[in-house]
Each structure stands twice: as structure tokens, then as C-alpha cells.
């Protein structure tokens, strides 16, 4: 039984399906995420495919500052993802609000709304960095029980 569990967890890391939500980024991070899917970086090598739908996703890649309007969307999407799930925040804005921290409609980084597992710094991060971040996230996906499951959900 334990063996099967470990096996399944290994497979989880081999097939992370990715949902990308741009919550108010400048596009820089988004196009780098998209670039990861395209021939030059081709993350499908790792079994990653882009799904447009939280129900199918294991990984939530979010970029951009959270603002008052999209924070609800972000929380909604997170709640629609079946566990185990990993959130990767991409780019300075996603990590902390970046250069827009002080703007009036900015709540802050992604982790103000949903628990974040991996932070990928950069403005925007290079596709290599995003791949690194996803790989880091996969480690967490492999050992889902170690996550301190229910953190604060807005």
C-alpha cells in the first residue's frame, strides 16, 4: 500500500498539468510562461501540459499583482482545483507586488490570497527559471502529505 502510494506520488510529479492565471501582471511573465510551452523550451518533455481549467490542473502558475477584483477569481480558481495542488508564484509582482506594491489597487503578492509553494523571482523570470520553479514544485507534489495542507484561504 505504501509502495503504491509512493508510486502514485512519483507519477504525480511526472504529469503536472498546469493552469495559468494572470492576475494582473504586465504580460511579461505570461508570455514567458507561454514560451515555456513552445518548442524552444517545450515543457511537455516533463509531461506538463497547459490546461485551461482548474478542474484538471495540478499546478497553478500565477503571475502578477493581486488586486481587489481578481483576488476573488484567484481564490475561486484555487478552490476548484482538486488536491494535491501546487501554487507557483511567478515574477516580482506575484511574489510581493513588485514595483506596484504601493499602487492603490494592489493587494500584494499571490500569497496574500492563497498559499504559495514556490516563488520564482524575476521581472520577468526567464523560462529556465520558471522551469526550475516548476521542478521545485514537483518535489512538493511528490510528497503532498508534507504540506501543511489547509493554510489560510481568503
Amino acid at each position: 500500500m505504501q509502495g503504491i502510494k509512493r508510486f502514485i506520488n512519483q507519477l504525480r510529479a511526472k504529469s503536472p498539468w498546469l493552469l495559468h492565471f494572470d492576475c494582473g501582471s504586465c504580460n511579461g511573465c505570461d508570455i514567458e510562461i507561454l514560451a515555456c510551452l513552445t518548442p524552444v523550451y517545450d515543457v511537455e518533455r516533463f509531461g506538463i501540459i497547459h490546461v485551461g481549467n482548474p478542474f484538471h490542473a495540478d499546478l497553478l502558475l500565477t503571475s502578477g499583482t493581486v488586486n481587489h477584483r481578481n483576488k476573488k477569481v484567484l481564490a475561486n480558481l484555487y478552490s476548484q482545483m482538486p488536491s494535491p495542488k501546487i501554487v507557483v508564484a511567478i515574477g516580482a509582482c506575484g511574489l510581493s507586488g513588485g514595483i506596484f506594491r504601493e499602487a492603490y489597487n494592489v493587494v500584494g503578492g499571490i500569497d496574500k490570497v492563497i498559499p504559495v509553494d514556490v516563488y520564482v523571482p524575476g521581472c520577468p523570470p526567464k523560462p529556465e527559471a520558471i522551469i526550475d520553479g516548476v521542478v521545485l514544485g514537483l518535489g512538493k507534489l511528490q510528497a503532498p502529505q508534507e504540506r501543511n495542507g489547509e493554510r489560510k484561504e481568503a
Binding site: F55, L77, Q80
Partner: peptide, 10 residues
């Protein structure tokens, strides 16, 4: 039971 997919706006 979750809400159906409504583009994250449910």
C-alpha cells in the same frame, strides 16, 4: 461538490 467552471467568477 464544487461550483461548475465559470471562468473563475462563480
Amino acid at each position: 461538490i464544487v461550483s461548475p467552471y465559470l471562468s473563475g467568477l462563480q
